[in-house]
């Protein structure tokens, strides 16, 4: 039997909202340590990796590892029947479940839904646990704003790191521009900008994907960008007390 209860069901809805335009069908994996998901977008340029630890749930039980194939679109249809303040419980009964049950619970209403599961043959990538040569922490809303602004000028955005901070730049047909974000150690953790740069990097990415990734900014006030030269970048949103959502994006290769 598998059971996982979100005290804050709104959080689960935010996670689904954050990934729904990146991936269509996903395998949700549950085991004794928690729930995880790894899926690529159809063009195999971006990868979503979610980890929710067992300790972050109000109630968690998983006696045997299981894989639940879900359509994100259908999952969202069911989640629309829940309130943002509901507690949400996911449950399966059988060893090889064909449905995933949802209970939405508020002060004055309990709703039950069953979502049909699918058998998905999905490619899994082995993402190495590497050290990145530049790691930047900055407010997620600021990153969203920069991507939106620069994305108007060109479809590719450049990112350059140095000990002084991080620089975003674009060169398009209409002209070019850059935005430098300065390091600060303000007392407000959500406004802090930190750069750990062992080796500076200069990389270029399709801004369209960043604009999709930024839907996850509702999960955390800070975003962590981890980069190494000529390697995929990782954008991480820490989900407080539960785990994290990591979004990987392959770099553009300039010839």
């Amino acid at each position: 039997m598998f059971e996982a209860k979100f005290e804050d069901g709104g959080l689960f809805k935010k996670i689904v909202e954050a990934i729904k335009e990146l991936v269509k069908n996903v395998n949700l994996e549950a085991n004794g340590t928690g729930i995880s998901l790894q899926a690529m977008d159809t063009s195999h340029v971006a990868l979503v990796a979610l980890q929710l630890n067992e300790k972050g749930f109000k109630k968690y039980r998983c006696e045997k590892s299981l894989t639940m194939g879900l359509s994100i679109e259908n999952l969202q249809k069911i989640l629309k029947c829940s309130g943002n303040d509901d507690q949400i419980t996911l449950r399966t009964q059988d060893e090889e479940p064909t449905t995933l049950s949802f209970t939405f619970e508020s002060k004055n209403r309990i709703s039950e839904f069953q979502l049909n599961l699918m058998s998905l043959d999905q490619e899994q990538l082995g993402v190495p646990d590497t050290e990145y040569s530049s790691v930047v922490r900055m407010p997620s809303n600021e990153f969203t704003k920069i991507c939106r602004e620069l994305g108007n000028i060109n479809e590719a955005i450049g990112i350059e790191t140095s000990k002084e901070g991080i620089k975003f730049y674009v060169k398009g047909d209409i002209g070019e521009g850059q935005v430098s974000v300065k390091i600060n150690d303000t007392e407000k953790p959500e406004e802090r900008v930190e750069c750990e740069v062992d080796e500076p990097v200069n990389l270029s990415f399709a801004v369209r994907y960043f604009n999709l990734f930024n839907k996850a900014s509702a999960l955390s006030s800070q975003v962590i960008l981890s980069m190494s030269q000529d390697q995929p970048l990782v954008i991480e949103y820490i989900i407080e007390e539960m785990g994290s959502l990591k979004l990987y994006l392959a770099p553009k290769i300039n010839d």
């Binding site: 990538l125 082995g126 399709a206 553009k252």
Partner: peptide, 14 residues
Amino acid sequence: TGFQSRLENFFGKT
């Protein structure tokens, strides 16, 4: 202006 690389170029399949 360059082309978009794919994740398989960096991460192995498991």
